[in-house]
Design a protein around this nucleic acid. Structure first.
Lengths: 128, 128
DNA sequence: TTTGACCTTCACATCAATGTGAAGGTTCGA
DNA sequence: TCGAACCTTCACATTGATGTGAAGGTCAAA
């Protein structure tokens, strides 16, 4: 598929797809005319990149850990340098902390929202 | 406390603290000499801002929902406009999706890491 | 009273993620 | 064969979160 279709299927602008390629996150094949040519797997790949980006990882880290996340699972032991392992550990822990923080704040928002909605349903006479 | 101390206690640069104030996220009192004067509650407040920022919320949204997250819990029913409720719902759901995505990727990284560490402990002869 | 460590504002710089548009090639159907 | 709808690269613009530095005020201790 060409870039337009991938763009539509992933909700990602063409510009961004080219940017991700420029950053080394994806590598499209090229047709004889120079057009990028993507296969099915790129749909998930792009969605995954968006997710990681949204999770706050910068492209340079995503580039590092993306190969580890391939489906079907392939373990690239060659890549398992001490630095790589350290990066993975660091990101895993960072993400865990991130998840906790996010969960706390999400819960606080949800709690507040529920309280407000409860109030709307049965307002107490002495509430503000 | 002055900005330097708050900066150290929150691990946030003075520049950023001023920026958050400029964005309306925090409002410091001023001493006679013009210096910002923060009380204890700002420590948690700044940490919370960092958390939300790290969660991907932009400052303009944080500004909106921050009052709802105050400890001790105070429900500002006056602020419960339909728009506010919609924003809260939207952000709550966005954050939930975010948490799920993050968790999936974190687990994938953790899984890969464990596999690599297992391999290091007892390498199979036919693995790459 | 001077020095150093604070603080202030202002403003320009940077970085990543994006938008946007120009200038031009390709493909395909009317 | 023409036009629409793709594609290409290049490059400048913008936005949000930050860094950095200048120019200057405040304050405490030597």
């Amino acid at each position: 598929m060409r870039i337009g279709e991938l763009s539509e299927r992933t909700g990602t602008s063409r510009r961004l797809l080219r940017y991700y390629e420029e950053q080394g996150l994806i590598a499209a094949a090229r047709g004889a005319n120079g057009y990028r040519d993507y296969d099915e797997r790129f749909v998930d790949r792009v969605l995954q990149i968006r997710g990681l980006l949204d999770a706050g990882l910068p492209t340079r880290i995503i580039k590092q850990i993306l190969p580890c996340l391939d489906q079907p699972r392939t373990i690239y032991f060659r890549d398992a340098t001490p630095e790589m392992i350290a990066t993975l550990r660091r990101e895993r822990d960072r993400m865990t902390g991130h998840i906790e923080c996010l969960t706390r704040n999400r819960d606080a928002i949800a709690e507040y929202l529920d309280a407000v909605l409860d109030y709307d349903r049965a307002p107490a006479p002495d509430a503000v």
